[in-house]
Nucleic acid binder design. Structure first.
Lengths: 188, 188
DNA sequence: CCAAAGGTTTACTGATCGGTACATGTTGTG
DNA sequence: CACAACATGTACCGATCAGTAAACCTTTGG
């Protein structure tokens, strides 16, 4: 049971869960996809839930790493970075494998607010809100928490809309809205 | 097979699907909940997918009816109605059975963009966007489509955030943001 | 070289999945 | 009342669900 074997299983599971959904993906399918046997799979993860949680952890790490790094590449000042985050989102939407936000989907499939999977999905959003709040504060917003929440609303709305309504270019509209909101938050 | 029997089945199925999700809800469970036999169920709906589509149609009707009516109760002018829509959303979020947007969940569980269920979920969002566009035009926005899309982004983001992050009062922040965006859209 | 230890595989469990064949009412019409 | 037409319920289908027992390598320590 070398340590990277487990990581490889998580990586593959993440792909499949992201593509097909959690309930719609059976352990048998994952066993076939990974080439490992079922017993081995259950040696690494005691339950399907544990595997899902591991996949979500990896997704959180991957996504936040990419998102924050990309934002820093695109802009220098906190204010510009808040706006540039929507350019990063736009790139994500245009990417090949884009299938929406895995944590929104996790929260949708496991609706009980006390369920570990739901809790972990919420934690991801909380971390993003925290990041936006930090940017808003450093940008000089009068009420950083308020601006950060508004930016987050635009981001989540853009993701959902990118999945369901390709017609209205969510990333562009969200960016335009964010500019207006940022300016208003700096004036007061 | 009196016509209201089918409606009753759809109504009950809607409840269960909304509470528990689509893949997580088996036909056997629906059969038990409705008290009807399995054969009868499959006489009314040839497949589970057909039942889901019927439930989504009912949901679309119920939700849009309630939402539009409530908005009209809360405000008189198109501009005020755009803003008041977030008060209506807030009431929805605070309601007992609130479990997020059924169409976001449908789009999340059936991700294939050509899948009938995904298509129908998208249609619901399109109708809402159309409604917002009409309000924005009558409110005098310089680019009604742009304002409507931004309002929609805030709405979708607020719903998602209401599910996953109770901490930041999404309805209130979305409303505040909408006011700023509306004002900006009227100026230009 | 042997033997213990631990990872891997095969084959299986009972439960549940969506869906159906067939027997049993129930109802409208002569 | 008789009979056709149709709705309903019972009992079942093969497939798949998450999860496991026990045989089978494969590696490590002596």
């Amino acid at each position: 049971m070398r340590p990277n074997k487990r990581d490889e299983l998580v990586r593959k599971a993440l792909q499949v869960f992201y593509q097909d959904g959690f309930h719609a993906t059976g352990m048998d399918k994952l066993v076939v996809e990974t080439g490992v046997s079922k017993t081995s799979m259950y040696k690494h993860f005691r339950t399907k839930e544990e595997l899902i949680l591991a996949a979500l952890r990896l997704r959180d790490e991957n996504f936040r790493n990419w998102f924050l790094r990309r934002i820093e590449e695109l802009a220098d000042t906190p204010a510009d970075q808040l706006i540039a985050s929507f350019d990063a989102l736009g790139e994500w939407f245009e990417g090949d494998g884009f299938r929406g936000c895995m944590f929104i989907k996790a929260g949708a499939e496991f609706q009980d607010k006390t369920h570990p999977i739901h809790v972990q999905a919420a934690e991801h959003k909380r971390l993003l809100l925290e990041y936006f709040t930090d940017l808003a504060r450093r940008a000089g917003a009068s009420v950083p928490e308020a601006l950060a929440c508004q930016i987050l609303l635009l981001k989540e709305g853009a993701i959902v809309t990118a999945v369901l309504l390709k017609s209205c270019d969510p990333a562009r509209e969200a960016k335009a809205a964010a500019k207006v909101l940022l300016e208003a938050a700096l004036l007061n």
